[in-house]
Simulated scan of single mutants.
Amino acid sequence: MFELRRLRLLHELAQRGTLAAVAEALSYSPSTISQQLAQLERDAGVPLLVPEGRRVRLTEHGAALAAHAARALEADEQIRAELEALQPGIAPVRVAVLQTAARTVMPAALTLLADRAPLLRVELAEVPPEEGLFELAARGFDLAIAEQYPGLTREHRSGLERRTLGTDPIRIATAATGSGGGGGGAGADRGGALELAALADRPWVMEPRGTAAREWAVQQCRAAGFEPDVRFELADLAAHVQLIAAGHAVGLLPDLLWAGRRPQADGIALTDLPGSPVSEIFTAERRAATPRPGIRLVREAIADAFVRPATLNA
């Protein structure tokens, strides 16, 4: 009889590619992972792994058993969902959230949950959407809040279900006139006449390479006829705001960042991009976990808390 815990290790290896990555994700030592997979191989009676340099790869038998492991884990999750339906709140809900939603949506959602389900434990981690969706599929999280930029499609992982929350406009951000730091006059208020091409010779701040936000921002600059001089590469959007307000950089920022306050108060002027592009903000969950009442309650609270600012300059 196969042990589900060992099947999960094989599934994780198929997802992550290396024993070290599996060990880090599950907080085990690599030697422990190796020992458990060796026992699984003995249980199966066929080779599951073969060495490949310093790594290992799945054999044909290993890949077949990993596929069965994924289905076994889904069945386990469905059973747990049915049990939780009989006693809601017995398991925490782990949420992966992108930075803007962590700042604006989740505090309001947690306030709603404190009233609707006071015994429900919600665990929150701010991670990039790329990582959050991967970890959701790998069962590191139960729910994820992510974004999709216009013209860029994210990988659709099997077993995940997406639900749209709303849209988030993205605008050119420059230092507001008179905010200091030099270069304050380079911007224009929302709806002004500033063109993206006018910022071709300015330093830019963008999110790290490999993120959808970075790829989309670079494509906007290229479409305007120039390659951006990205001098500042930062994941923290609050740091973007500070650099831009001080006149050291320009950038592209989402409206959700300003929910509840005016960008001018932070020394930022916003200008619409051509076509007024918006990103789609969505939640994702594993279909096998959808029956869990805790996940449903958190998803509904997030949807109720998501409000796009009606105006930024009022």
Rank of each mutant, 00 (worst) to 15 (best):
I170G: 11
S29L: 13
P118D: 07
L152V: 14
A38Q: 06
Q35F: 01
I145V: 15
T174I: 10
A70S: 12
E12T: 06
A101Q: 11
I302K: 02
H156G: 11
L83I: 14
T111F: 12
R171A: 15
P88K: 11
R209E: 09
H68E: 11
G260L: 10
T177R: 14
P88D: 06
D115Q: 14
R262W: 02
G187H: 03
T290P: 01
P254E: 11
S34Y: 00
L73Q: 04
T290I: 07
R80P: 03
E155S: 12
H240Q: 08
R157A: 13
L120A: 04
A144M: 14
L133F: 06
S179G: 08
A101P: 07
S27E: 12
G185Q: 08
A69R: 13
P274R: 10
R190P: 07
P309T: 01
G294W: 00
P129F: 06
R202T: 08
A284L: 06
L110Y: 08
R154E: 09
Q99M: 09
Q242M: 13
L49T: 04
A20T: 12
S29D: 14
T153L: 11
Q87R: 13
A235W: 00
R103T: 11
L297W: 00
P169T: 13
F306M: 07
G267W: 03
V50W: 08
Q219I: 02
L40F: 01
R71D: 12
R157Y: 14
E3G: 03
R8G: 08
A301Y: 02
L37M: 12
A235S: 14
A102S: 15
R116D: 13
